[in-house]
Write a protein that binds this DNA or RNA. Structure first.
Lengths: 216, 216
DNA sequence: AATTGAGTTAAACAATTGATTGATACGCGC
DNA sequence: GCGCGTATCAATCAATTGTTTAACTCAATT
């Protein structure tokens, strides 16, 4: 009969809880609201997850894993230039962060975790952030001389991440700041090119942005 | 309506409310907790501000105004080079955003507003974000050729803001990512120089970062 | 057929919350 | 003193919240 109930209640709760927690935060979200949206009984949360907080942790894990699978990094053939891999990295990261106006709740859930760290934050860093951060650093290392200090290379990595994340964190601000037309133009691919160009130009691996009419 | 002598409690309430709202968010913060910390009666909030939500709006305004006064932009003498003004802008913005581990609650309050826009957000953009965004754009315009498209110039402005904000938004992540020693090294002045250098190098107004032993 | 046990349900619980009330004290001009 | 408005207080209200409980369903197992 009801298609929704073909999926086990526990899974439905996880999905719905992720969305609601992302939208309203842990405290503001009520188990009643979640259970209503998941078409489950109010007691379902406590039965399947113990309590509200445990449901939250599971929802964060669930969302995070789902997002990685959704936008995997490309497999680079041996010898792919570092500049290309940087572009791909930025493109993938931006896609993960920006894709889906309504379906991007996974990212918002993680952003909440960042702004208000809980137990889940450390897991998120260890499992998700650190590997990507080190990959980005290894790419940058190939674009920089051996003598370039590790400390400054890390700052460059932060410059990449910071620019990317800003299009998610600052999105509501941009929407109020720009005309509807200009705001709509901020598409992931365009922004990925821009960010890559800024970094590559800053490194000297591409011509400066200010240079205009120069072509080979 | 309100006498000048009944300021103390109302002012105390504003200060404390800002801190608590920043720390726990609107919903999780309780008027009881705020009043207790402000050494005021539970009814004080409703008496002075009408209700909890109104107190929140006033607290946001208060925090935002206080932060601008605390770190004003320098007065540039006529003819100050655009590169210098860009550096100053980044430095000031970073200081506003990063300064004070425990006293930076004003920024956290605004970040919450960004992640979860309410009525106060539009006011914040109109009164605070837009003027600074246009100032930054005018500085960048001087560093770019006339023909440089406005759209791409705005992206550059976002690159500046994004890098700066990341050291506030991503701070908890960085603390988990870096060693305690490396994390402590992330001081505003150092970061301001880095960000300015990245942007100026990308524009061609400064030598590329990868260039090492080059000096005039 | 009887039993078991996981899953679901409605009802209720205790605690917390924002908001209201009525009383009281204080300061002021008259 | 008297009247009047402001501010604070303890007590309380009505609503919401997370959680618990006990009864019920139903398919698989014995």
């Amino acid at each position: 009969m009801e298609n929704l109930h073909d999926e086990p209640t526990k899974r439905r709760l996880l999905e719905v809880a992720g969305r609601v927690f992302a939208e309203k935060g842990f405290r503001a979200a009520t188990v009643r609201e979640i259970c209503l949206a998941a078409e489950a009984n109010v007691a379902a949360v406590n039965y399947h997850f113990g309590d509200k907080h445990q449901l939250y942790l599971e929802a964060v894990k669930h969302a995070h894993r789902q997002r990685i699978e959704q936008f995997p990094l490309p497999q680079w053939p041996e010898g792919t230039p570092a500049a290309v891999r940087l572009r791909d990295f930025v493109r993938t990261f931006l896609a993960r962060v920006m894709h889906g106006e309504g379906r991007g709740w996974e990212v918002q859930l993680m952003l909440r975790e960042v702004l208000n760290p809980t137990e889940a934050t450390a897991m998120l860093v260890q499992e998700y952030v650190r590997p990507h951060f080190e990959l980005l650093n290894s790419i940058l290392a190939e674009l920089l001389p051996e003598s370039f200090p590790l400390e400054r290379r890390r700052l460059l990595a932060f410059s990449v991440i910071g620019q990317c994340l800003h299009y998610r964190v600052g999105r509501p601000i941009m929407q109020l700041l720009l005309s509807e037309e200009d705001f709509r133009r901020l598409q992931p691919d365009l922004l990925a090119d821009h960010i890559s160009n800024v970094i590559l130009a800053a490194l000297g691996a591409a011509p400066p942005l200010a240079a205009e009419g120069e072509s080979p």
